[in-house]
Design a protein around this nucleic acid. Structure first.
Lengths: 353, 353
DNA sequence: AGCGAGACTGCAAACGTTTACAGCAAGTGC
DNA sequence: GCACTTGCTGTAAACGTTTGCAGTCTCGCT
């Protein structure tokens, strides 16, 4: 556990620390020196101290991903995509989870203190404090989600309005006339955007009635609890549009516990098209917001900005697509084959936005 | 984006960098100095450089969690527990995901280069390389899982043999006589231990036949694929014991696609008792290995070791408990209430090991 | 033989902090 | 009025690296 430094290596090898450093980093040095230094390093178990190294070099070769709600599988999917891209470029990714809004500001501040060379963040709430922290940050970052245009940040977005339009059109086409939107907290960015998208989408269908409800959280349990009053109301809606898959799953469970049949009594949809939506029965119709594509794009954007800090800000919007499953359309018997779990087959029709 | 250092703050405040540092860190300094320094810092937007700080102080106030398979919800649960404990002690947690075995060694090596003051790891495979890397690491760490006793590491373990005993006894008590164990890769630590536990458990029941199978991975898809041949075999088992919940879910889907009814045609069990097991229908009987408790214990153990590096190595084993759901015992109609999703109610009987 | 180029080396100065030490002024007790 | 403490300050040395610079040595060329 004792720290061994480069001076000990240099001493043992009988050279200066400068030569040792050069030998270790593959810079110009004689074969003999390299040999001696490498052996000394091996014998002593030397590993360069990262803090000293990055202090001197001014780079850490690390990138950060700050994610608000790691319990939601869609963020895990995004994270995996980011990691794939980042690793390929020789950077390491570190994840920081930010529960509350204030801690999200803290994370930005802390990580930008020199721990990482850049960061990606998926904020649940974009507060003025957060914007201020981002503007003051000495490192580049990419926001996954909506951020005021004026800010001029690099960003990757999902297209919530198209997503909601896909869902509403699908339900209307299936003959549903009374829709309830079960949102997550409306003061979050996804909550606000999906609500807006839903309103715009139903406005285009004069024959469709709609109402709004809100779950305490983007979780299964919160979805379950918020669904109960909707499903037991005298004028029960014939379709519930959930703001994400977890809430949608809660709705499915609530319907089951009430003895309602899905989709005949009530149709249910989710958003994010997580693996959960495919695994549960009935399968949950959902909108794929392109988590993988968004994660990868954000990572590439960040790397591009690090390479060229003066490039103009980019904003990329990823197109969503609808994945229809048994929670909105009565299910045919399923074809045999594991592909049904991973990719849409004939039982799952996919509609691009 | 320009970096502002403490010398600029000191200059602007008209004091030495030493005084500035003292003022910023709340050490002894006159009220007037503090005022001037704070104002200068605010105006310039100064934030101390973390690498320089930790280089000088010899601590980073960061801990690391290296996790092999972030796609598995049980690790997310562990992570949340770790984070809860770690945050309360003023440390920050950074997550590093380690896909392959070799990258797991890399992560240990890299993080212990001075980026974190200690780390917790959940390795999927414990190779000699990994042991060597851990022994050479200059920082303390805690292993979540089995590690050779000789190594003398701090560790927190699940009790796989009790877990498997609980499952097998439950199935035997329900009248199942032909069990198949559907393992994940047997060359992983959990795979090896659960296999061993299963063997020991069935050895205690002379009237129960058993067979073994292996999924390519601890995932739903791999479980689905590996379950197919088992379920279509002429001598189909009357119960499938899956090595974790994800594999178990794959089994449920395979059974469904084959038109088999669970639990009457075949019973299914999982391990880990993730939220998924409670949400799917039929609910998946599973063993709670105490993810939350293990994560919290590991974090506390790490903090204790950092506080006192000379304390003897601790190994803690957490006791598992069985959670019975519809995949093994025909389900009664469910009581109303959201609690059914989160905690076991009368429909879910819990048996401690 | 002389000379420049090239390969390699060591010295020492950084990177941005914190902190041991010494210095200084003002206050206290005699 | 002296010695001592107390409270604060600045100088400078660290922490472990990398790197500009200048120097040495060897070699090949003319």
């Amino acid at each position: 556990m004792a720290r061994v430094t480069i001076v000990q290596v240099a001493e043992r090898a009988g050279v200066s620390t400068a030569s040792a450093s050069r030998a270790l980093n593959g810079l110009i040095a004689s074969a003999e020196t390299v040999e001696k230094v490498m052996q000394a390093a091996r014998e002593l178990g030397y590993v360069a101290d990262a803090t000293a190294q990055s202090l001197k070099r001014g780079k850490t070769l690390q990138l950060g991903y700050a994610v608000a709600d790691i319990g939601n599988p869609v963020y895990v999917e995004i994270m995996s995509a980011i990691e794939r891209v980042v690793q390929a470029s020789g950077y390491r990714l570190i994840i920081s989870s930010t529960g509350t809004a204030s801690s999200s500001v803290d994370v930005v501040r802390d990580l930008s203190r020199g721990l990482v060379d850049g960061m990606i963040l998926s904020p649940l709430r974009v507060t003025d404090d957060l914007i201020a922290a981002l503007e003051a940050a000495p490192i580049p970052f990419v926001v996954l989600g909506r951020v005021p245009d004026s800010a001029g940040f690099d960003a990757v977005r999902a297209d919530s309005s198209t997503a909601m339009r896909l869902v509403v059109e699908h339900l209307a086409a299936e003959g549903r006339r009374s829709l309830a939107f079960l949102n997550g907290p409306a003061d979050t960015t996804p909550g606000a955007l999906r609500l807006e998208g839903f309103r715009a989408a139903v406005a285009m269908h004069a024959d469709v009635r709609s109402r709004l409800a809100e779950a305490a959280d983007f979780t299964i349990t919160a979805g379950y609890e918020a669904a109960m009053p909707l499903l037991t109301a005298a004028d029960r809606p014939d379709a519930i549009v959930a703001a994400n898959d977890l809430i949608g799953l809660g709705v499915l469970r609530a319907a089951e516990d009430l003895g309602l049949s899905v989709p005949s009594d009530v149709a249910v949809t989710g958003i994010d098209d997580t693996e959960l939506a495919a695994v549960v029965r009935p399968g949950l119709t959902s909108v794929d917001l392109g988590a993988d594509a968004r994660g990868a794009a954000a990572a590439e954007m960040l790397l591009a900005r690090i390479a060229d800090p003066s490039r103009p800000a980019h904003v990329l919007t990823v197109t969503p697509s609808l994945v229809v499953r048994g929670s909105t359309v009565p299910q045919r018997p399923v074809a045999l084959g594991s592909a049904a779990l991973a990719t849409p087959t004939d039982e799952e029709e996919r509609t691009a936005g």
